[in-house]
């Protein structure tokens, strides 16, 4: 473990250099768009006080969480059903291809037609509808490509319906489901932000646009940085969960590659 310091240095070196560069280069910046980093840092605690965190950041994250969870449950359930039956899959495939290909942000005007675009419901629906496709399609693929020998094993040992579904089909598809869920997460973050740009309200995205419209540039930058941090934190959280639940899959892949 002698190379630990070196690895820490490698990991932190460039980010420190980049931030330092930004700090130095922007120190005497008079550009309107690029205020000195010192000013942005100073603006951060003043901008994101308890009130905006309670009324903008947390509600945004809550909407993301609700929409994402709905998409996860619905996507896995539908995907398992579609993936399990050949005929159903053939019937649905082109339709799913179409819905997957619709860029999720155009859902916003369509949903706005139905419900207006002020409340939580419309935003949560947007997030759920945008996130569901990658999860759904990856689940279909995962269930479909489950090893037939595993299925036969489960059948010949007379596994019950429920445990075949939970212990064999879903466990076996979980690497693909996780891949879909990861794609869905980044779509979810995008939709969380832009659903708030439509029909200005409160929320993280709305707040940032508010700063931009009122030309509060340092505050706007703090918002961008906060969003970036949230994106990084969410992907880190995802990786943590994935690391725990899919340890077997990494081992399996490594064993196969080493063979």
């Amino acid at each position: 473990m002698t190379d630990l310091p070196r690895r820490v240095l490698a990991a932190l070196g460039l980010p420190i250099v980049l931030v330092a560069l930004w700090w130095v280069l922007s120190a005497h910046s008079s550009s309107f768009f690029w205020p000195p980093l010192s000013e942005i840092v100073a603006a951060f605690p003043r901008t994101w006080t308890a009130d905006p965190i309670m009324h903008d950041v947390l509600p945004s994250l809550a909407r993301l969480a609700i929409g994402y969870l709905i998409a996860l449950v619905a996507g896995v359930a539908l995907g398992t059903a579609i993936g399990s039956f050949r005929t159903l899959r053939a019937l649905c495939e082109p339709t799913l291809e179409f819905f997957r290909a619709v860029p999720p942000p155009v859902l916003i005007p369509v949903i706005a037609l139905f419900a207006g675009y002020t409340g939580w419901t419309a935003k949560v629906i947007t997030i759920a509808l945008g996130c569901v496709w990658p999860i759904l399609l990856n689940t279909v693929e995962g269930v479909r490509s489950l090893d037939e020998v595993l299925r036969d094993t489960a059948r010949s040992y007379r596994f019950g319906r429920t445990s075949t579904l939970l212990q064999v089909v879903l466990r076996g598809s979980s690497p693909r489901i996780a891949a879909g869920a990861r794609q869905a997460l980044s779509i979810g973050v995008i939709l969380m932000v832009i659903s708030e740009l439509f029909g200005a309200n409160r929320g993280l995205g709305a707040a940032i646009v508010q700063f931009q419209r009122s030309f509060a540039v340092p505050q706007m930058w703090t918002g961008i940085i906060l969003l970036g941090l949230i994106g990084v934190a969410l992907s880190g959280l995802f990786r943590l969960v994935e690391h725990q639940t899919l340890a077997w899959y990494r081992g399996l892949r490594q064993a196969e590659r080493g063979a």
């Binding site: 020998v149 036969d152 094993t153 010949s156």
Partner: peptide
């Protein structure tokens, strides 16, 4: 007519008949 009770099968593809997550 279906997999009967009291019968066990050992497949050729040992690597694929064991559950890799267990």
């Amino acid at each position: 007519t279906g997999p009967p009770a009291g019968m066990a099968v050992v497949f050729q593809e040992y690597g694929r008949s064991l559950f890799p997550w267990l």
